[in-house]
């Protein structure tokens, strides 16, 4: 996999009213790279994830995906978002659609794939995330871990260039976290997917990330390899954060 920039953030700033939630963010994510973003709550890490496909607009700076600057809200942005998969903390599966319909909706409506082909492809993906037997069920009939795996399949169905994970396991019971992380790990290591993962799962960061981005108060404080970050973090704030979460 060539080390070629896929997502580039330059001088990105964002405010919610008076609150400065992203401060001068510069970050380049290469094709095939897995970047894990960690930091205390309110550090802006979720917002960072959400500005990459412009679910949140930014006030200053530029973001480009595969060389294309994010356009204003409209058809072009919709087309660009189709290439950026997103997995949410609260799954957000379409409640009125079956599992299969959730996965085929994007390909049919956005990519104009035929229904039969979309269904074939969806079943392959559902098998890959281990949930093909639930294809005819509605999201409410599934456990959280199962729903999140469907959400991953839904995002993959668009054949995205990059996948964004916004705290994908934070709403899950402990015994379901592993099944979701396994799918993500498979995606990172075997499929070579470019991934930006906001998470509190330090084990995942260690085993899957090429780089760890540590954020605090809206700014990137430190970027390091996981080995270096977890054994010998440079910044005081990262040391403090790690001592708190790894104390038990």
């Amino acid at each position: 996999m060539a080390d070629e920039a896929l997502v580039v953030l330059q001088g990105v700033n964002k405010w919610f009213g008076d609150l400065h939630v992203l401060r001068d963010i510069d970050l380049t994510i290469d094709r095939g790279e897995v970047v894990v973003v960690i930091g205390p709550s309110g550090s802006g890490k979720s917002t960072l994830c959400r500005v990459i496909n412009r679910l949140e607009p930014i006030q200053k700076g530029t973001i480009t995906i595969d060389g294309v600057a994010l356009p204003e809200e409209g058809k072009e942005l919709a087309r660009l978002r189709a290439d950026v998969g997103m997995v949410f903390q609260s799954f957000n599966l379409f409640a009125h659609k079956t599992v299969l319909q959730n996965v085929t909706l994007g390909p049919i409506k956005v990519r104009k794939t035929s229904k039969a082909q979309a269904a074939d492809q969806a079943m392959t993906l559902l098998e890959r995330v281990g949930i093909a037997d639930k294809a005819k069920r509605y999201p409410a009939e599934l456990s959280g871990g199962q729903q999140q795996r469907v959400a991953i399949a839904r995002a993959l169905a668009m054949d995205p260039k990059v996948m964004l994970f916004d705290e994908p396991t934070s709403a899950l019971d402990p015994e379901m976290i592993k099944e979701v992380l396994d799918v993500m790990l498979d995606l990172a290591q075997d499929a070579g997917m470019t991934m930006v993962v906001v998470t509190h799962e330090m084990g995942f960061a260690r085993s899957a990330a090429r780089r760890v981005v540590f954020m605090d108060q809206g700014a990137i404080v430190e970027i390091a390899s996981p080995e270096q970050f977890f054994s010998n973090p440079e910044s005081e704030r990262a040391q403090d954060f790690l001592s708190k979460i790894l104390a038990h």
Binding site: N53, L55, E73, G74, K75, A78, R79, L80, R81, A82, D83, V84, G85, M86, F88, S90, N92, L93, F94, A95, H96, L105, G106, K109, V110, A151, R154, A155, M158
Partner: peptide, 26 residues
């Protein structure tokens, strides 16, 4: 839920599609 519309936008649906396919039926 706001997340329904967000998920719809995230897979590349346009605003009219988001309303017509995901939000209105619910």
């Amino acid at each position: 839920a706001a997340g329904q519309a967000e998920a719809a936008r995230a897979i590349g649906l346009t605003f009219p599609q988001t309303l017509g396919i995901v939000v209105f039926p619910q």
